[in-house]
Design a protein around this nucleic acid. Structure first.
Length: 567
DNA sequence: GCCGTTTTCGGCCCGACTGTTTTCAGTCG
């Protein structure tokens, strides 16, 4: 899969062009890069299937970039980029990743001091060579040095579910300030993306500077990048960068829209505004006479643009604007609407808490049912259950069910391990006694795509299996998904009436949003589970809901929005 | 370099902040 590779290379060309101050082309390459990245099919596969000509039908890709993509696929290189690299041989990718360094500075530094990479840059700073250059000074030199240090300890992208607590704490802290009237996180955090680069927080206040000052007293701040009268940028001790922006009450909606993004969504709705003769920016929607006609809420802005309100989770310019024009945005599944969790591990295997404790916690969370799905025997590392232990767990569940009668229903289940050959490691007659069976892969991740796909289909074909757990096996920031033909599996699930899971565990979120959309198109039902290994994990259900919303799911697409289930 | 219910040519989102300037260039989102 060369999509990301090609996107990266197109971005590199963009940087080089920007370096030379070439107008407009950089954005064009940027846009093309995004387009390739957003493509959910292998680009080579795409070309094989549709022909090279069809490349030009992808947004942002025309004659010239299409040729370059093909050149890259055929030769592994793009001549133009090679020439640019030869002319200015710098590690432009990493250098521009340093906060405050852009392509123009990279060029200046290369011309003046032959700085090629971060190491050279750091050395030049330490030798005080930067401050002597025109346009630079002592301050900028120190700042670069600081940014290099921050880059070195930089933590990359954060998994959404793991940073929610600190962001909520910060928002509460700001709310406590008597100067803040409205406040909301924006950006990819509000869009509930799987991973977050940095956090944008938007507030309104009659006394903006006071809010900024108060913000900078937050105890978890490690570093202040910038501070102005309406905006400040900081890094938290955990490495997360946070921007705070304070605007007027009347602009809150416009700013919320603007800072929530995505960038592509913004550009698209701004274009709609322009076509109507309006101007849209973070302060509001303005008519020809520069009179503000909307801005206090996002709703009124969408309305003035003749668009249905678009929930933040689907603002990716992936068809939502066209849908909103036609009033065809579906009613997305709502937070808090999951009635039961169908993947729960306990201390019978690798979970921390007992069935009883998990059930009590689930009652607190207002769930109507949970399904106990401990691992099975071949997953030795977890102490997986064999047939005998499964039977005794069932007895235990019966006992607890009579104890909790009316408060919660505990379902009998298992996360059955799929063996290398696609067989399951528990006998059918035992599986038949369970209420709900999820099958999952925990080994042989690297089988070839067709074999892996067949393996999964074979497991799903077992009449006792209801659901495929964490279907692609990816672990965000840690493990790539195993190679499978997801379309074939979705097709198979449809034909055989099987369920696919949306595993809500923060670094799984598996299925991905685009898979969820495919399931909906095909009419394949899904469930949202937490994959809880302790009571606190049961709180992750809404992360799964966010994931489902990003995949345009409605309540009827997700089975465990129902009060009762039959399998 | 891309794109088209104002266009196949002439537009491309735009404002805040910083540092080094004395009116602006560069970066960022």
């Amino acid at each position: 899969m060369k999509n990301l590779e090609i996107a990266k290379i197109l971005r590199m060309i963009a940087l080089y062009l920007e370096m030379k101050d070439v107008p407009f082309k950089p954005q064009a390459y940027e846009k093309a890069a995004y387009s390739i990245e957003a493509l959910d099919e292998d680009i080579e596969e795409f070309i094989r299937r549709n022909g090279e000509e069809k490349l030009k039908e992808l947004p942002g890709i025309g004659e010239s970039i299409a040729k370059k993509i093909i050149e890259y696929i055929e030769t592994g290189k793009i001549k133009e980029l090679e020439n640019l690299k030869k002319e200015v041989p710098v590690d432009i990718e990493n250098l521009t990743a340093i906060e405050g360094i852009g392509p123009k500075i990279v060029y200046k530094l290369y011309k003046a001091l032959k700085i090629k990479d971060i190491k050279d840059l750091e050395k030049a700073c330490l030798e005080h060579k930067i401050r002597k250059l025109p346009g630079f000074g002592e301050k900028s030199e120190n700042k670069i040095l600081q940014s290099i240090n921050l880059f070195k300890q930089g933590t990359g992208r954060f998994v959404l579910g793991f940073i929610i607590p600190i962001v909520e704490e910060l928002v509460l802290f700001l709310k406590d300030s008597k100067y803040v009237s409205q406040i909301s996180p924006c950006g990819s955090y509000r869009r509930r993306k799987e991973t977050i680069g940095d956090i944008d927080i938007l507030a309104t206040s009659k006394n903006k500077e006071k809010v900024i000052d108060y913000f900078l007293t937050f105890k978890e701040i490690d570093h202040i990048y910038a501070k102005g009268p309406t905006k400040a940028m900081i890094r938290l001790k955990n490495g997360l960068d946070v921007d705070l922006r304070v605007v007027e009450e009347k602009s809150f909606g416009a700013a919320l829209l603007y800072f929530t993004g995505s960038k592509d969504h913004n550009v698209a709705i701004r274009e709609i505004a322009i076509k109507k003769g309006y101007k849209l920016n973070e302060y509001g929607l303005f008519d020809k006479n520069n009179k503000m006609i909307a801005g206090k809420t996002e709703e009124e802005i969408y309305k003035k643009l003749d668009l249905q309100f678009i929930p933040p989770e689907i603002r990716e310019n992936q068809g939502e604007i066209e849908a909103a024009k036609k009033n065809k945005i579906p009613k997305l599944i709502e937070y808090g609407s999951i009635k039961g969790d169908l993947q729960v591990q306990t201390n019978w295997t690798d979970g921390q808490d007992s069935i009883e404790k998990m059930a009590k916690e689930a009652i607190k969370l207002n769930l109507k049912y949970i399904c106990i799905t401990d691992h099975t025997q071949s997953l030795a590392i977890t102490g997986g259950l064999d047939e005998k232990k499964l039977l005794s767990q069932m007895q235990e569940i019966d006992k607890l069910n009579s104890k909790f009668k009316g408060r919660i229903k505990i379902l009998k289940g298992a996360e059955v391990n799929i063996l290398k050959d696609g067989k399951l490691d528990i006998k059918d007659e035992i599986l038949a006694k369970l209420d709900f069976v999820g099958a999952a892969i925990h080994s042989h991740f690297d089988l070839p795509k067709d074999i892996q796909t067949e393996r999964i289909k074979k497991a799903l074909a077992n009449p006792h299996v209801d659901c495929l757990f964490h279907p692609t096996g990816r672990i965000i920031n840690k493990r790539a998904p195993y190679e499978i033909d997801i379309d074939e599996i979705i097709e198979f699930a449809k034909k055989n009436n099987k369920i696919l899971e949306i595993d809500a565990y923060p670094n799984r979120l598996d299925l991905k949003d685009e898979h969820i959309r495919k399931c909906i198109q095909k009419g394949v039902k899904m469930v949202i589970d937490t994959d809880a290994h302790s009571t606190v994990h049961l709180n992750f259900l809404d992360l799964g809901v966010a994931q489902a919303r990003r995949g345009w799911a409605r309540a009827e697409d997700i089975l465990n929005t129902k009060e009762e289930l039959k399998f």
